[in-house]
């Protein structure tokens, strides 16, 4: 893979496309969670391909290609949402102090619709990166440029929301 990245950095579009296509399905599905429809998700994929090939020469460490690409895809999704509506908040709410027995249990009952409708953008980012992309907390925090503790707080808040929704208390509905 590192060889392909190096070739792509020299402008080889075939090498880049080979790399990109390994991740295009992931990118499409991630984008779909943010933008909630096929057309916009396809736009995000195209824009991600465009931005990433244009800037791959700046990627200093080829081994970080995947997280680098994911970061671009997240930004493309948020940019598209920003264009469509007023604003995407960087800090949607003050961090609450989460206590109690919240665990990182991903085996809760959840549907794609829940993820799309219940979570805000930053919660979607952390949930997707942690569970779908299976990044470590450290990688999640580096990809999204947020402190490690904040990434954990956001994830626990998101899981809590999903869990409460499944319990049917209707608070987030």
């Amino acid at each position: 893979m590192i060889n392909l990245v190096r070739k792509a950095q020299k402008g080889n579009d075939k090498a880049f496309l080979t790399l990109f296509q390994k991740y295009e399905q992931d990118i499409y599905r991630m984008a779909f969670i943010y933008v909630k429809n096929q057309n916009d998700a396809l736009d995000v994929v195209q824009e991600t391909a465009y931005r990433s090939f244009k800037t791959i020469k700046n990627l200093k460490k080829p081994r970080y290609f995947k997280t680098w690409l994911i970061r671009i895809a997240v930004n493309c999704s948020l940019d598209l949402l920003r264009k469509q509506r007023k604003a995407v908040q960087l800090k949607p709410e003050l961090e609450e102090n989460l206590s109690g027995d919240i665990n990182e249990d991903a085996d809760l009952e959840v549907t794609v619709r829940d993820l799309m409708e219940i979570l805000n953008e930053e919660e979607k980012s952390v949930v997707i990166l942690r569970f779908y992309e299976e990044l470590t907390f450290k990688e999640v925090s580096e990809t999204l440029d947020i402190p490690l503790g904040t990434a954990k707080t956001i994830l626990y808040r998101a899981l809590d929301k999903l869990r409460n929704n499944w319990k049917g208390d209707g608070f987030y509905e």
Binding site: L17, F20, Q21, Q46, A49, F53
Partner: peptide, 12 residues
């Protein structure tokens, strides 16, 4: 999907 990836790359 595949086609859109290609379009993005060729545009760049």
């Amino acid at each position: 999907l595949n086609e859109r990836s290609k379009m993005g790359v060729s545009q760049a």
